[in-house]
Nucleic acid binder design. Structure first.
Lengths: 198, 198
DNA sequence: GGCATTGTCGAACAGCGTTCGAAGGCGCCC
DNA sequence: GGGCGCCTTCGAACGCTGTTCGACAATGCC
C-alpha cells in the first residue's frame, strides 16, 4: 500500500511463503470475507497470477494455511499439557484449543471448516494428528476411568468443537457471561460428573 | 429454460415461496456450491432480478431458508420426544437432530453456519427456540440429576453440534464404522457415565 | 554466447451477486 | 371509460471474483 521501493531480492522468503503469510495476515486482521487472491497478492507484494505457480487454486492455498494452523495448534497442545501451570494435562489441552479459537477465530474456522475437511485428506490427517496430541492429554487425566479413556477423548474433542462453534456463532465471538458459565459448567459436569473446572 | 408457456397465475405460490423452494431443492440435490441466484431463478422459473424484490440479498434468502429449517427441526424434536418408540424423550431428540443432519446435510450446515448465525439475530433466535425444545427432552431424562439438568442440556447440545460437524467433515458424510462407534460410545459415557445408548 | 527451463506477471475470461431502468399488469379515481 | 400511479417482473449491465493464457525476464547448463 505505502510505496515499497525495495528490490524483490531483499524480501524474505519465496512467493509461496509470502502468499501464505499475507493470507494469514488478512485472515487475522480483516476476516475471511476480504481474503481475495488480489488482496493476498497486493499484501504480499507479488503478482496475482504468480500464486498459481505454487498453488493449484485458492482452495489449495487455504488448505495449506489450515494445515499450518493445525501444526501450530498441535505444538501448543503438547506444550501446554506439559506445563504444570495449567493444573492438569487435560486443562492445558483445553487452554491451547480455546486460545486458538479466541485469538485467531478466522483461522480456527478455516482449520475446522467442514467443507474443506470433507474435500481434503491432508487436512483430515492434520486434524487427526492434533487430536492425538489432545488425546494424550485426556488419557493423562485422572478423572476418566481407564476403559473409557479412548472413547471419551474422542467425545470430548467433539464437545470442544461444538463449544467453539457456539462461540463463533455469536456476533462478537463471545457468549453473554451467564450463558458461557452454564455452558462450561455443563461441559465440566459431562467430563467428571461434578462441578469441577474444564 | 424448457419453454414454460403456462401463465403465471396458474403457478403455485408467490415468487418468494418459489425461490425458497427452488433454493431448498438445489441445496438438497446439488449442494451449497451450486446454489447460485441464477440457478435458483432458473429452477423456480422466475427472473433473476425478481428475487431482489423479496430478499435484500442472497444472504437474506439463505437466512430465511435456515430459519425455516430450524422450524422443521424444532417440530421434529417435539414430535420425536413424545414418541415412545424412541425409548426416552432424550433419545427422540437425538434422533430428530441426527436425522436432520444425515438426510439434509447441506441444509443442516447452512442452519448451523457460524458465519450466518453470527451475523443474524433471527437465526440465533431460531436456533435458541430449537434448543429449548431439545432441552425439554433432556430435562425429561432420568439420567441427569436435577441440579445439573439445565447446564448439562446446553453442553449436550454443544456435543451434538460437534458430532454433527465431525460427521460432515467426512468426504461421504459418514465416519468409518469403528470411529463412529467410539464417538457415540464416548458421548454415551459423557452423558451417563456408563456404556448406555445415546 | 546461446538455449532451454523456470519464474513472474499484465491482461483477459467466465461466472458471481447486485443494481438499474424499462415494461407489464392492476386497481383506483375523476 | 380513460388516464394515472403503484406494485411486480425482468433483461441488461456493472464490478468483483477465481482462473487462464501468453509474453517477458531470470537462471542455469553446455
Amino acid at each position: 500500500m505505502t510505496g515499497n521501493a525495495r528490490p524483490a531480492s531483499l524480501e524474505v522468503g519465496g512467493i509461496k511463503a509470502k502468499a501464505l503469510a499475507a493470507a494469514a495476515h488478512i485472515l487475522a486482521t480483516q476476516g475471511a470475507d476480504d481474503l481475495s487472491l488480489r488482496a493476498i497478492a497486493e499484501t504480499a507484494g507479488i503478482g496475482l497470477a504468480s500464486i498459481y505457480h505454487y498453488f493449484a487454486s485458492k482452495e489449495d492455498l487455504l488448505l495449506n494455511l489450515a494445515v499450518e494452523g493445525f501444526d501450530g495448534l498441535r505444538r501448543d497442545i503438547l506444550q501446554f499439557q506439559a506445563d504444570p501451570a495449567f493444573g492438569s494435562p487435560m486443562r492445558g489441552g483445553h487452554r491451547a484449543f480455546f486460545n486458538c479459537a479466541e485469538t485467531r477465530p478466522a483461522l480456527f474456522s478455516l482449520m475446522f471448516s467442514e467443507r474443506l475437511m470433507a474435500r481434503h485428506e491432508p487436512l483430515r490427517q492434520a486434524e487427526h494428528a492434533t487430536f492425538l496430541a489432545y488425546q494424550a492429554a485426556v488419557e493423562a487425566d485422572v478423572r476418566i476411568p481407564e476403559p473409557h479413556k479412548e472413547t471419551a477423548a474422542l467425545a470430548i474433542w467433539a464437545l470442544g468443537r461444538g463449544i467453539a462453534a457456539i462461540l463463533s456463532s455469536q456476533p462478537d465471538g463471545k457468549l453473554p457471561d451467564e450463558v458461557a458459565e452454564k455452558l462450561f459448567a455443563g461441559a465440566a459436569y459431562l467430563i467428571d460428573h461434578s462441578p469441577g473446572e474444564t
